[in-house]
Design a protein around this nucleic acid. Structure first.
Lengths: 362, 362
DNA sequence: ATGAAAGCGCTAACAC
DNA sequence: GTGTTAGCGCTTTCAT
């Protein structure tokens, strides 16, 4: 079989330099010893031939490809594209390249992507997993000892794998506390969580952190809301929990319905980027004056939040840092030959802009 | 040397099945012939052992990694993240995985990225190149016969390489024509091109397409503007060419300065995503009523353009399709063993929304 | 139909 | 200090 783009091999270099294969290999890999003359002859020969080491061959010997895999729902989504940026930056500065896959939240695609990455012998994989009951592919590679880190979300059945995510509950709690500090007590929350208020309250109040940790981000955020309210002794109100599917349109509908319902609220916090866009659309569609009629805090520092007026206050997740942390965690596990132990919960921060006003005590 | 994550090899499978290595290889690769019994024994053994083909070894033999490289300025930039999405989708459906690199428009990073991809023996590389005078790394891999396609921009010294990009001149011309059709004649253009009006006009009027093709996107867009004006017999006016560096802030400053200058214009078109954000900021800062005081057409279908009011009309580049086309072009070149010949200029489209009004003829 | 053997490019003992 | 050799996992003649 002829090689496709026959570039010079170490053998070619050795022949050109008039030394043995291993002599050439030694100087090219800066390992072992070689006389100055040999060194020079080999280096010159390599230069002349435009020698380029074949990392495939190196990987076969060493078992290390210096390649990381990252499996995400969609790299075109601003959140994940920022995560990917952080991931590739950290990977590259440690000498790793990265192979990306999109899953579109399809479990089939996810598992085939993971299999492919494993066949390509990546040294580790970061996955923002599709939320499903039986993530076999992930479980399998993890069991085989390939370093894996979960991104953004955890799966109940994979509780043992390290997770890198924002501290979702705290993120939302920060927003709610800020609203409370500004005098708000009727605070609506737009969420895609589907659990009942009672169920969520039980978790929020319960001491069972293990159970909490297995919740999806959306639910953890509601927990943060409930805890912030409780800390301020503000009762939670079923009617202030606005439910929406994960889509801009549905979020808009949900918020419009709420605004039309007559339920009173002085503030609104949306707990996700898409929901935030939908909520904002609803506010404009219903001509709500922000922050006079309603204070508003969105989620994720999207471009548009500073382009509109008033500029929208948001909870900002450290997106790039999430990616970078995932990469370094993985690399640590690869280097340390030990499974990367614990979770990394990074703090989100509140970017206070002009969409929140103070309520003067009556 | 011990392998890192020793997964079963074809030898293990052969032993488990009680056949020879080559027998196992044949059934596992569905090549050559094997008796039904052998086939079954091998398949079962593979299943039992959780055999996973080692693509590294396959690649060593075949010289094909089924991996594509893509080198972009920044995957977190919405334009490039969409391009990347299209690229990975097309790659994956043809059985290729993709390795990404960010360059931040740094020539050093670009060339080292390319070298690394070449060392990993990717089958082809798509590059949105840093605009520089001497792109040695690209020239080198291209000379070695590795399939390369340029994305979005061309380099004068690499005129021979195929390019996949939007038809920049036509994109801008579409916007300008739409403004003209709505009665505008005083149309300002925000650009990062640095050539003088005379220089650009010479190219716009000249028959020298070869020279035009080597211009950077920003300049090609101005050419489209000049041609659209010329077609309507509207003279170009130096004062209507607003110059800005490639940044939101600088664009804002440029537009604000223009608005403050007293030069009259009834329409503005910004020729890039960042410039569009900056221009929009300036319009809000100066309280310009759009479209009454000024018609506005932006560039790239960014999220916020439909969140603000009035919704901003934009020129939309087929971002994902650009990426997908780059991938299929590359794959064609890989399969055909022939250098992918010609360019692909994809058409942008005008998304007419509410930021353009008609001028009633006086 | 099946097995033996060579070889892709590289590294690492191991002799000399 | 240098060369010989085996082998990473796989495909592919080539005999049998």
């Amino acid at each position: 079989m002829t090689q496709r783009h026959a570039s010079a091999t170490i053998i070619d270099v050795a022949r050109e330099a008039g030394v043995s294969k291993s002599a050439a290999a030694r100087v090219l890999a800066r390992s072992g010893s070689a006389s100055p003359q040999t060194k020079q002859k080999v280096l010159e020969a390599a230069e002349r031939l435009g020698y380029r080491p074949n990392q495939l061959a190196k990987a076969m010997k060493s078992g290390l490809t210096h390649t990381l895999g990252v499996v995400l729902p969609d790299v075109a989504n601003p959140f994940f594209s920022a995560v990917l940026r952080g991931f590739t930056d950290a990977a590259r500065s440690a000498g790793f390249e990265v192979l990306v896959s999109n899953t579109d939240n399809d479990p089939e695609i996810e598992s085939s992507s993971i299999e492919l990455l494993a066949e390509k012998r990546v040294d580790g994989i970061a996955i923002a997993p599709v939320l499903q009951r039986d993530p076999q592919a992930i479980a399998r590679i993890a069991a085989e000892g390939i370093p894996v880190v979960l991104l953004d979300r955890r799966l109940p059945t994979l509780a043992a794998l390290p997770l890198v995510s924002a501290d979702h509950a705290d993120a939302t709690a920060q927003a709610v506390r800020a609203l409370i500090d500004n005098g708000h007590t009727r605070i609506a929350l737009l969420t895609e969580a589907t659990q009942s208020l009672d169920e969520l309250r039980a978790i929020a109040e319960g001491p069972d952190d293990a159970y909490f940790a297995l919740l999806r981000p959306s639910a953890q955020r509601v927990i943060g809301y409930l805890r912030a309210l409780a800390a301020a002794e503000i009762p939670a109100d079923e009617h202030l929990l606005l439910r929406s599917a994960y889509s801009v349109d549905d979020a808009q509908r949900a918020v419009e319905a709420f605004l039309d319902s007559g339920v009173t609220a002085t503030a609104l916090h949306s707990t996700d980027a898409a929901l935030t866009s939908g909520a904002y659309r609803a506010l404009t569609a219903r001509d709500i004056a922000v922050p006079q009629d309603l204070a508003f805090i969105g989620f994720d520092d999207q471009d548009w939040t500073t382009l509109v007026r008033p500029a929208v206050s948001v909870i900002d997740q450290p997106r790039q840092r999430l990616g970078a942390t995932a990469a370094t965690t993985l690399i640590g596990a690869i280097r340390g030959h030990a499974p990367s132990a614990h979770d990394h919960l990074l703090n989100a921060s509140l970017l206070m802009r002009d969409s929140v006003g103070s309520i003067t005590q009556a």
